[in-house]
C-alpha cells in the first residue's frame, strides 16, 4: 500500500462501495475499476476479488453493519462467526484504506 493511512473499522461500521470506483460484475466475477487517481498502486490497475471477497462485497449495501454482514455470511456458509468477523473486518479495513469502500459509524 502506498501513502494511504490505515482506516480502522469495527463491527459497528457500515460500508458501501465508494464513489471513487466502479464495480462491475462480469460473468460472476467482480472487477473493481478505479475511477479517480490514487486507488491502485499504479494508475492502470484493477482489482479482482476471490470468492470470500465477493461474498463479503455483495453484502456491503451501506445499510448493514460489518457485524451484521459477518452474521449473514456465517449462516450462509455455516462457518464460525468469529472467523467471519475477522474476514469481514480484514476485508473492509483494507478496502476502506484504499478508498474502494466508504465507511461510516
Amino acid at each position: 500500500m502506498t501513502a494511504a493511512s490505515k482506516i480502522d473499522v469495527t463491527l459497528a461500521t457500515i460500508c458501501a462501495p465508494s464513489e471513487d470506483v466502479v464495480a462491475r460484475e462480469i460473468e460472476g466475477d467482480i472487477v473493481i475499476v478505479p475511477l479517480v487517481a490514487g486507488i491502485g498502486d499504479a494508475d492502470d490497475e484493477l482489482f479482482t476479488l476471490n470468492d470470500t471477497g465477493k461474498a463479503i462485497w455483495k453484502q456491503l449495501d451501506g445499510e448493514r453493519t460489518l457485524g451484521d454482514v459477518a452474521k449473514v455470511l456465517a449462516q450462509e456458509f455455516e462457518a464460525p462467526l468469529a472467523e467471519l468477523q475477522a474476514d469481514v473486518l480484514g476485508f473492509a479495513g483494507e478496502m476502506t484504506t484504499r478508498r474502494i469502500l466508504a465507511a461510516r459509524g
Binding site: 492502470d44 476471490n50 474476514d87 480484514g90 476485508f91 483494507e94
Partner: peptide, 13 residues
C-alpha cells in the same frame, strides 16, 4: 494485499 483482493493490470482469469 490480502487474500481477498488482487491488484491486476487485467482481470486474472
Amino acid at each position: 494485499m490480502s487474500e481477498f483482493v488482487r491488484q491486476v493490470k487485467q482481470p486474472v482469469k
